[in-house]
């Protein structure tokens, strides 16, 4: 199986001196659902941004779909960032049209199916949408692109349990179709439902890197328990 992402000794120090990543290495195989876990400030978003070429790594190497992602990004990847920010003064259908004008391999039909499935409210300005609807819109836009890699940062933010499940189904279905999904979330139970492989980050270091099955077999506990064990003692 080909590696979709390969990171070697990746580290990132921000201009303000914050060391967000301290030399992490991992690879993501094609056709897998890969989760990126860790508490706030562990370096999840920094990792995603390095993989997508929005941040320049301080040191280390990354190949995303066989190409260095910085600075030009990866056209064969679709990103749903943590903040689902879109142009507030624009109505949803116009936003879709605008997105379709620059997003590679975007299909309006695919978008319509997804929007319908997730129950997106269409006839509003983006600024008037609830958090849940913004997430639905962003996720629908991202999955309406036919690309090899989907990078999702908190893709169920603000969604009710039914739609949440629908998003997870969407992730599984895309993997059936041969896509790779990189999924970052702080909702462990959700990640536990879909992921094959995962890394757990803590203060810019990797605490676990392997399959979910191995983690469960090795520790004899479920994901939440392992996670809590790993971080217990620091939270009081």
């Amino acid at each position: 199986m080909m590696d979709v992402i390969e990171a070697k000794g990746l580290s990132k120090v921000y201009k303000n001196g914050v060391k967000a990543l301290k030399g992490v290495s991992f690879s993501i195989r094609s056709g897998r659902i890969f989760a990126l876990l860790g508490p706030n400030g562990a370096g999840k978003t920094t990792t995603l941004k390095c993989l997508l070429g929005t941040l320049k790594p301080t040191s280390g190497e990354i190949l995303t779909l066989g190409k260095q992602p910085f600075p030009d990004g990866v056209k064969d990847a679709s990103f749903v960032p943590e903040e689902k920010s879109l142009y507030d003064w624009i109505k949803v259908p116009k936003m879709v049209k605008i997105f379709g004008s620059f997003a590679p391999n975007f299909s309006f039909e695919r978008f319509e199916k997804l929007a319908k499935r997730l129950g997106l409210t269409m006839d509003r300005k983006i600024g008037e949408l609830s958090q849940g609807n913004r997430t639905k819109l962003y996720v629908s836009l991202a999955f309406a692109q036919d690309v090899k890699l989907y990078v999702l940062d908190e893709p169920t933010w603000g969604l009710d349990p039914l739609i949440r499940k629908e998003v997870l189904n969407l992730v599984n279905e895309n993997v059936v179709g041969g896509k790779t999904v990189l999924y970052s979330s702080h909702i462990l139970s959700e990640v536990e439902e879909v992921c094959d492989d995962l890394i757990i980050l803590k203060e810019g270091n990797i605490m676990y890197n392997g399959t979910l099955d191995n983690l469960k077999e090795k520790n004899g506990t479920n994901l939440s328990e392992t996670f809590l064990d790993m971080f217990r003692g620091e939270k009081r």
């Binding site: 056709g31 659902i33 599984n172 279905e173 993997v175 992921c195």
Partner: peptide, 14 residues
């Protein structure tokens, strides 16, 4: 694998 994945809404790799 595909069909079962769709039917029980599970990850096909699993």
């Amino acid at each position: 694998v595909r069909k079962l994945a769709f039917d029980i809404k599970a990850n096909p790799n699993t």
